[in-house]
């Protein structure tokens, strides 16, 4: 096997191991993030913020129309 082939194969090995390692970590913490996103408390926060934002935009659009 030539040095160039060996270089690419080592790079492939490192990239592949990194991919599956990071994917495992992301899966573990992603489950917690998903729970947090879908939790009722968080949803209430989102909706409250967005209601404020929607009111805000509506005020602005009324001003534009005037």
């Amino acid at each position: 096997m030539s040095a160039a082939s060996l270089f690419w194969l080592i790079l492939y090995g490192v990239a592949t191991l990194t991919f599956f390692s990071v994917a495992s970590v992301i899966t573990f913490f992603g489950i917690q993030d998903l729970r947090s996103l879908l939790s009722k408390t968080n949803r209430k926060d989102i909706n409250k913020q967005n209601d404020d934002s929607s009111n805000f935009n509506r005020t602005d659009s009324r001003r534009e129309m005037q």
Binding site: I26, G30, Q32, R43, D45, N50
Partner: peptide, 26 residues
């Protein structure tokens, strides 16, 4: 059922954290 307004529909209420965001981007 989680979509209650426009920002919820387009950007999930801007509440996505690092690991979940990374998983969805990948």
């Amino acid at each position: 059922k989680y979509v209650e307004n426009m920002e919820g529909y387009y950007v999930a209420g801007r509440k996505v954290k690092v690991a979940l965001g990374s998983a969805t981007l990948i």
